[in-house]
Amino acid sequence: MLTKIITAYNEAVFDTDRDQALEIIHQAVAEGITPEDIVFKVVIPAMELMIKSISEDFDANLAQHFMASQIASQVTDEMVAKFQTSPHVVGTVILGTSHGDMHTLGKRIVSGCLRSLMIEVVDLGVNIPAEQFVEAALTHNASVIAISSMMMHTARSELGCLKVREILKNKNLEDKIKIVVGGAPYRWDPHLYQAVQADAWAEDGITAGKVIKELIMEMQK
């Protein structure tokens, strides 16, 4: 039965048909599938499938990623609320756009993907000062700070990623907290992430899910 649900759900996500996706999930729950199985055997594999198809498909459509990641995070939120015991969280990420950057939307895909991959996300919002990123990482015991910049000048700014790096260095936190960057300017210049002293970068929201998960796993070894 699970195979049938997986096929139907994948199809609904591919068609970005949210109503259909939710109906499939609700029916599965009614038929006795546990919320845990839905998240781990249906939603996460579907998300990983999408990550795979996007890393292989140059023409991938961003609008559809937004739609699909909204479906995934909505289903995950609904199911996690029904979990018998609280789920094992892989790790925590602090997310925000860099100082001076008001673009909220890139983060949305990242957040949706990460949450459906069982990574806790603390979304600080837009125009976040460097100090706040580090404080939040310490408060929430997060191992990754993810900074999104949609403009070249905010990516390169001395008050953005470079400042976060400086604070981590001064507080001797560089082994405990890694920096991941993303957003349009990093696509224009694939070496930019090194210039702003980040540990890694991701090309789009969905690969960010993958990069961040791998980074967390690496650090936990």
Partner: peptide
């Protein structure tokens, strides 16, 4: 709009 709650959902 960057500070409007739920703008993201509305965008999608």
């Amino acid at each position: 709009m960057s500070y409007v709650l739920n703008f993201d959902e509305c965008f999608v």
